[in-house]
Design a binder for these strands. Structure first.
Lengths: 256, 256
DNA sequence: GCGGTGCAATATGTATGACAATTGCCAGAT
DNA sequence: ATCTGGCAATTGTCATACATATTGCACCGC
């Protein structure tokens, strides 16, 4: 017993609570396809044994997965994996599990496509709706990028920049997307930038967006955002090509 | 004790499990602003008394709210309401609570704006990427709208129609949005349509989208979708104007 | 033989009580 | 005044028992 507490303290980091760990593991395994939609999860008693925790912990983990739309529990039936359509794919955890599970390049492409749809419009809206304070916050993020000494610092400012624009758009449903992108792509920004040797060349593209927003020119902001995303898209495509050629998918290596 | 079990069996419907009810109530109250970000929720013992349920139920409810990013629990501290940025606003439950809590018209406007951003692009993508089966599913939804005898039937087909297009777009991150719209606006479609006396006039607008998708003309599909949304937007604006003038919000009537 | 009815088996749902772990806070010492 | 130690409050986890829902089978009646 207590496997999770003893053995995994080594590997899985002593991070967070037990039910959280269990939820993470089962959630990731569902997204990995280890449990397919329609499948029955092992019943609670079995999971208790498997993870070496009490039923309380398992149940709380289940409730978290239920809240994310991954499973549905019913007496006498058990916990059944819900159809994909019910999954809260726009949940940070779920998205991270999904990203860790599937084809990395395909995921990045989907994500980038979403950005291409949303961010130009967000920029256009921001040009119209921004408050003085919101504009300042965008400008400060831009300054952060200008003064960034190294890539990590630049990435931090970059995320702040895009978040600030979404915030300034005045549509609160757009904001969660920024945080989604931040969560899911957070570490990936490293990759996209690492291969873009002269990442500073993206600076003027960002600057153009700010100028358009400051001048309250939605159409110009939209176009500037599209230019930036097209550039990012090229970097991504380049990276995908390389990672496809060099080594095989290399999933295992990238895990954990 | 047992207030929840006895008294609320009358009002709150005997729907679902206890922890679910508790989660619903606390979640709704958070979204209503009754508990503001940074506030401490009553501790578990207190909530047990308040709802007349065991600590088990309360804790499972808390875990669900935690999974949705609404709260964060820590020993000795209690459960604190997270900053709005952490809220999973793109979660169905959260969105429903949000919609029930705030300014209805403002919410509808935000939602509609998201649709204006996403759906034309989704239609354009669908025109390029759709499979034969996906196209058929779109067409069948259209047939459902054509043959709809009454407004409810039309609404069901309408939702199916937009979902089918999102599915055909080939970007799985777009699909959850359809379900979000379905969940949050599900009952509201009634309202939007009820005031649009001759709702059938929207049929050709839908048809145009299908034609463009079938012909694989992304630009035409985008334009057709924009036309439809502009029409819906007019209906919404009309409705907002009326509901602002005639009677006060009239929330109570629309509930349940 | 066929079908309906009820009972039992099984899984989750809920309750209860105990203890562990974490951390803010206060008192006391330096 | 600052640091330190212990106390207390709160969530985290465990164990056990019982309640409830649902399936499937068996029994009984027709």
């Amino acid at each position: 017993m207590r496997q999770l507490r003893t053995t995994s303290r080594v590997a899985a980091v002593r991070k967070s609570s037990l039910h959280h760990q269990v939820a993470q593991d089962i959630g990731a395994r569902i997204l990995k396809g280890e449990f397919a939609p329609g499948d029955l999860l092992p019943n609670e008693a079995e999971s208790c044994r498997a993870y070496g925790v009490s039923r309380t912990a398992v149940r709380e983990a289940m409730k978290m997965l239920t809240a994310k739309g991954l499973i549905l529990s019913r007496p006498k039936i058990g916990s059944r994996v819900q159809p994909r359509d019910s999954w809260n794919l726009l949940d940070r955890d779920v998205l991270v599990w999904y990203c860790a599970a599937g084809e990395r390049n395909h995921f990045l492409a989907s994500m980038h496509q979403m950005r291409e749809i949303l961010e130009p419009e967000a920029a256009a809206l921001a040009a119209i709706n921004h408050s003085a304070e919101q504009l300042r916050s965008i400008e400060q993020a831009l300054i952060g990028m200008r003064d960034a000494a190294d890539l990590p610092a630049w990435n931090v400012a970059d995320v702040r920049f895009h978040l600030a624009i979404l915030l300034a758009s005045g549509n609160e449903l757009l904001v969660p997307f920024g945080f989604l992108i931040e969560s899911a792509l957070g570490t990936m920004f490293d990759f996209t930038g690492r291969h873009n040797q002269d990442w500073r060349k993206a600076y003027p593209l960002h600057e153009a967006i700010v100028v358009a927003i400051r001048k309250k020119r939605p159409e110009a902001a939209r176009k500037a955002a599209r230019l930036l995303l097209a550039d990012t898209g090229r970097v991504l495509a380049q990276w995908a090509r390389e990672s496809n050629r060099g080594k095989r998918p290399a999933k295992v290596k990238a895990r954990s």
